[in-house]
């Protein structure tokens, strides 16, 4: 259990505190939890926290009353994500949320991608890490505007952090915005940032079974990148098996194989981005043309 994540000490670079909560974050628990012996459905090989007992809904009506709430727990985050998505649509921005384990090569991939794209399209990067601005420094060295968001103890970016980062970074119209999430295949799956796609990066030095071990992330991703394929001859990684596993949890997932170090397979990745951006810009043009037509029509009828 990740009991320390999501605490309100996230920092947007150059910005004192993006999350001011006036509540405390108690992490010391001195209360007991009376869990019965059948509380976990375990066998003698593993403890499985994913299967709990069903709650029983028997409200004891007395002096008290029942209030229907019907609110999504992530509703607050999703409101911010919706605003970020609306901002992207209005500005013709293709926003991609890059998610992976630590060490999959996300930042190397981003540096090479930024280098390849920067002459043709505007690019901006939001970097999420618990601490340090090392990654944003690496991106800025390529001449691309980048902003570091430190999540402090948090294990994922949330949509509110991204909204603050967008406001500070002010990406250009019709640009590609890469959001490099905290290296973590678990928590970022649940937090919509307002991106067009989540891009899950898996390197061939990791296990090919990760799509089954972390199914929520691969189910949420639109694209899976198999990175470091230049190292395939030195590993036992089974590409076909990995892709099969990914498609089991997400039949629609697109898969690209590349090496961010050698550039092998990069053309397809750049083509995928370019097509996504073309669609984002085309939608903005359609919206602008509708506005223009409305403005002209208003003159005609005046």
């Amino acid at each position: 259990m990740c009991t320390v994540c999501g605490c309100g000490d996230a920092k947007v670079e150059g910005h004192a505190h993006s999350h001011d909560h006036d509540h405390a974050h108690p992490h010391d628990h001195d209360h007991g939890h009376d869990h019965g012996p059948d509380h976990h459905h375990d066998d003698d090989r593993h403890i499985h926290y994913g299967r709990g007992i069903a709650g029983v809904h028997v409200p004891g009506l007395s002096q008290s009353r029942i209030v229907q709430i019907e609110r999504d727990i992530l509703g607050h985050n999703n409101d911010f994500a919706g605003r970020n998505r609306a901002w992207a649509a209005e500005h013709g921005v293709l926003a991609l949320n890059l998610v992976s384990s630590p060490g999959s090569g996300k930042t190397t991939l981003l540096c090479r991608t930024a280098e390849a794209l920067k002459a043709k399209v505007p690019v901006a990067v939001i970097e999420g890490d618990q601490q340090t601005s090392f990654d944003a420094d690496r991106i800025r060295a390529t001449g691309i505007p980048a902003l570091q968001v430190n999540t402090g103890k948090g294990c994922h970016l949330d949509a509110h952090m991204v909204e603050s980062a967008i406001a500070r970074l002010a990406p250009a119209d019709d640009s590609v915005l890469f959001i490099e999430n905290v290296g973590n295949l678990v928590c970022p799956a649940a937090f919509d940032l307002g991106e067009a796609y989540k891009v899950a990066i898996l390197s061939v030095t990791e296990g090919e079974d990760k799509p089954l071990k972390y199914p929520d992330m691969f189910a949420a991703a639109g694209l899976m990148i198999l990175n470091k394929i230049d190292l395939l001859p030195h590993t036992d990684f089974d590409v076909a098996r990995c892709i099969d596993f990914a498609r089991r949890v997400n039949p629609d997932i697109v898969v690209l194989q590349l090496s961010a170090r050698t550039g092998e397979g990069f053309d397809q990745w750049l083509a995928w981005i370019t097509e996504g951006r073309r669609r984002a810009v085309a939608e903005r043009i359609t919206a602008l043309e509708a506005k223009l037509a409305a403005a002209k029509a208003s003159l005609g009828t005046a």
Binding site: T3, C5, G6, V67, I69, I73, H76, N77, C187
Partner: peptide, 29 residues
């Protein structure tokens, strides 16, 4: 995974609802 931040989200929604519906103590959620 991120149950702590989700739980804080639950309490925040409950606080909003308490103000809207005028209750001050919750017995069951």
């Amino acid at each position: 995974m991120h149950e702590m931040s989700l739980t804080e989200g639950v309490v925040r929604i409950l606080e909003e609802q308490a103000a809207t519906h005028g209750f001050s103590r919750i017995k069951t959620v």
